[in-house]
Amino acid sequence: MSIASVHEGERKPGMANAYLGMLLFLVSEAFLFSALFVTYFYLRTYTPVWPPQGVHLEITLVSFNTLVLLVSSGTMQWAISAWRRGNQRVALAALLTTMLLGSTFLAIKGWEWYHEPFRPWDHAYGSIFYTLTGFHALHVLGGIFILGALLIRTSRLRSLGHPLAVEMAGVYWHFVDLVWLFVFGSVFLLR
């Protein structure tokens, strides 16, 4: 039984099953992040000093990191369009670049966390800061895994088939980027 669709090969109107499945999954992930945002803003509303004393955010570094992630969405889209044109080598290169950019994002985030003067258990701000950015980072890591799996598979295919898989990976990656923009805006710009 193939993974992509029970009715592989049948002509069906509208969106492919699997793509819709990914969209539904992303809606649930949106709910997950919205809970974290609700927590952030709820605590922020009811806490007199926010962020608390001793919190110093690396805005410049994080802004650069945001740029890294935005570029990676660009390379992801590049991978999709290369796939649609049937260009296997370019698609592979674009996927690999996206993975590298994603890893760079994570590396910089790790450095940022290490150098922050506060920890998750110091206060509620710390808890929500690390949980929000942490869950996002986990999603980036998951995305890197997905892209890695896709990369392995694509490199072993003799020719590119339907772009469904890369499109699903793409919408996931764009979603994670979009979530980051909200995190960046709420935690680092709005504060």
């Binding site: 539904l24 649930s28 709910f31 809970a35 974290l36 808890s127 949980t131 869950f135």
Partner: peptide, 18 residues
């Protein structure tokens, strides 16, 4: 079933960590 599943995604991280 679908409508139900959205909120658990919502609930898990904060609930769990708190």
């Amino acid at each position: 079933s679908y409508g139900h599943r959205l909120p658990p995604a919502y609930l898990h991280p904060v609930h769990r960590h708190g």
